[in-house]
């Protein structure tokens, strides 16, 4: 396959670039013009461009028979994320060549409705998507729009589509702050200490993307990408501590207490701010659920459909 990869300079994108080249695909890797480019092999051809604007990158895109869309704005205000995720995707879709054989979209777990499963329930590919995006953050709002646009376009153009929804991608435990929710002086607050983190190592995630390029596919597949051996917030913190990280004094905060704090903040917002208060994630009920609710996750479909076998579950403490 000749793969056009967007977001090649990013955290996941660079891992996909390496994995794609290692598996023999030739890669047209889209980097932002100001990025430092170090192609890992001769199979990788750097393409300079920014999806927020039409440009010469569209000519290179025409050579591809598979697109892996990894580019998105993961931070910034709503306007920044709309431009970096939604407008960028709109430009990409408008430039897709005729006869594209496959589109692999890197979505996110954040698109799910985390309040939908029952107590201690399972969140999988059949779970419902967030029905009220405006109560969530800009990232969720824009990733939902992005996924909807891509699905509509691929359906209309009859392009086979794989939607991958990775969990929390990490290379080291520091990427998720060792499971901490907050630091207060010498204390480390671990919210929902017994809740599972949906971690997946960046190289495992990249290998799932490569498997999605190669897997047999009729029309559309939606697949969650999480590691095989779940770890709790407390477990991650403990492992990091055991491996010598300089951490503070841990204070586990049960999820029920987190919810009570969120409930109190919700009431205060209604009473004092007409429900318009801007709350931090740890006080905002919908975002609390998305981050710390005790749910279980599965990669059964990824293993069955993609033949994917994550093998770095224990690397976090290495």
């Amino acid at each position: 396959m000749k793969v056009f990869l967007t977001g090649a300079g990013g955290f996941l994108g660079s891992a996909i670039t390496n994995a794609a080249a290692a598996s023999g695909h030739s890669v047209l890797a889209l980097y932002r013009p100001c990025s430092r480019i170090e192609p890992p092999s001769e199979l990788v051809e750097p393409v300079k461009g920014d999806l927020r604007q039409r440009g010469d990158w569209t000519e290179k895109l025409a050579e591809a028979n598979c697109v892996v869309h990894c580019a998105a704005a993961a931070s910034g205000d709503l306007a920044t994320q709309l431009t970096g995720t939604v407008l960028a995707t709109e430009n990409l879709l408008a430039a897709l060549p005729e006869g594209l054989q496959r589109f692999v979209h890197i979505s996110s777990f954040s698109v799910y409705d985390f309040s939908a499963p029952g107590p201690f329930g399972r969140l999988d590919e059949e779970s419902v998507l967030e029905p009220h995006p405006l109560r969530r953050d800009a990232y969720t709002q824009t990733k939902l729009i992005q996924e909807r646009m891509i699905r509509a376009h691929c359906n209309a153009k009859d392009i086979p589509l794989v939607v991958l929804r990775p969990g929390a991608i990490y290379r080291t435990a520091a990427d998720w702050d060792y499971g901490r929710a907050l630091r207060a002086g010498p204390f480390d607050l671990i919210f929902g200490p017994l809740s599972s983190m949906r971690l997946v190592h960046v190289d495992d995630c990249a290998s799932a993307v490569i498997a999605a390029i190669d897997a047999p596919l009729e029309r559309e597949l939606v697949i969650n990408i999480v590691g095989s051996k779940p770890i709790t917030y407390w477990g991650l913190y403990r492992r990091a501590r055991q491996s010598g990280e300089m951490l503070g004094i841990p204070i586990p905060v049960p999820y029920m207490l987190v919810r009570m704090l969120g409930g109190a903040a919700w009431v205060a917002s209604r009473v004092f701010f007409e429900g318009r208060a801007r709350l931090p994630e740890w006080l905002d009920l919908p975002r609390q659920e998305a981050r710390w609710r005790s749910l279980s996750y599965s990669n059964r479909r990824a293993r069955a459909e993609l033949g994917w076998h994550p093998d770095r579950d224990c690397a976090i403490a290495d």
Binding site: V86, E90, P133, I145
Partner: peptide, 12 residues
């Protein structure tokens, strides 16, 4: 010019 940005604003 962008249908997606327009739809996002209407939805918001």
């Amino acid at each position: 010019q962008s249908p997606a940005m327009m739809a996002a604003a209407a939805a918001a």
